[in-house]
Structures are given as structure tokens and as C-alpha cells.
Amino acid sequence: MNEKTEKIGQQLYTDKYFEHGHWLLKIEQTLVALIGWVCVVVPIIITARSYIGLQTGRIKPWWSYSEGFFEIKFIGILLLFCFAMVLVYSVFMTIIQNRKRDRLVEQWPTFDPIGQHEREDEVSDFFDQQFGSPEFCHSVRFYEVKPEQNLDTHEIKDLFKEQHSNEIN
């Protein structure tokens, strides 16, 4: 990377909170984050303590509204249903993917990387014979293809058939 790119990259990912100085900003953002977490954790503790206290009778609940407990049970059932649906979906998708993978593994010899390189070399040699070397093609400004140089419809495919039949013999 050159210096210009590095400077732009640094400018895109700067945050004053992590730079030296900016103490008021750090204090303010830390307090906002802590207040936010308190606003999340305290209602959960109050709700859990009240629900457990009413269910077991061991802890004095902070509130005992029947509508609140009905909502907690409703949300619990809703979350349980969502969990069951996600579980069923995940299990079925796993089964489907495993079956697809097994079918693919059974058909695995469909791609041969070593043979691919050999075929690329074969096609490259064929085009060199048909149209000239790559250096020649890049050095000329205009090139007119002679009628006998045109390729037949299945000429490349036939070239691989010949190669495959030579490998078998």
C-alpha cells in the first residue's frame, strides 16, 4: 500500500473515544453506556424476581399484576414456539444439505484439477496452431481469420474426446 491509501484507511477508522485526550467525551459516553445497561438489566431483575417470587413463594415479589404474569407466560410460549420452529427448520435443512453433499461426494470425479491443466494446455496448443502464438496475436494490429481457420461447432469438444480416447488406449 502506498502512503496515500494508508492515510485514507486511517481516517476512515478513527474514533475520538480511543484517542489520547477527549476526557469529557469518554466520561459522557461511558455514563450513557452504563445507564443504558442499567435500563436493560434492572427491569429483567425486577421481572424475574417478581415472577419467581410469585411462583415459589420464597421471595417477596416487587409487583404482582396478573396481566404482567399473563404477558410473561405469553412471551415465554411465543419464544418457545419460535425456538421449536427454528429447531425444526435447522434440522430439516441439515438433513437436506447432508443428502445433497452425499450425492455430490458419490459423483465427485466430475472435476479433475490435474486433467483441467492438461486440457488448458491442449486448448492453448490448439489455438496456437490455429491462429498463431500469443506473441504474434498481440503484436499485430489487424488480423483476418481465413475461412479454413474458423472453428467447427463441436471442434473443441471433439478435441477432448480425442484426448480422452488416447488416454484410455
Rank of each mutant, 00 (worst) to 15 (best):
I35L: 15
S50R: 04
E120H: 04
S124A: 14
T30M: 08
E106G: 07
S124Q: 06
I114Q: 13
Q130C: 03
H117F: 03
A84F: 11
S64L: 00
T47Q: 08
P61Q: 12
E28P: 00
T56R: 09
L25T: 10
I77M: 07
L87Q: 05
K73A: 14
I77S: 05
H117V: 08
H117Y: 05
Y89C: 04
G132K: 01
V32G: 02
Q10F: 09
Q29C: 07
V105L: 14
D128F: 00
P113F: 04
K100N: 14
L80H: 06
Q97M: 10
T110K: 12
A48K: 01
I52K: 02
Y89H: 08
E67K: 11
G9I: 12
E118A: 12
A33W: 15
L54I: 09
R119S: 02
T110P: 00
Q29Y: 11
F131Y: 14
R58E: 15
D15R: 12
K26T: 01
M85Q: 11
M85K: 04
V40I: 15
R141S: 12
Y17D: 02
L25Q: 10
F70N: 11
T94Y: 10
Q97W: 06
P43Q: 10
G76L: 04
T94R: 06
K73I: 15
K4S: 13
F131D: 02
N2D: 15
V88Q: 01
V42Q: 05
Y13K: 12
M85W: 06
V38E: 01
E120M: 13
T14I: 13
R49Y: 10
Y143R: 15
Q107F: 02
G76C: 06
K16D: 12
W63K: 09
H20E: 15
R141C: 08
R99M: 11
I95A: 09
P43K: 09
Y13M: 08
G132C: 03
K100I: 07
G53N: 05
E135N: 06
V32H: 10
G36R: 09
S66I: 08
Q107A: 13
S133N: 02
G57E: 07
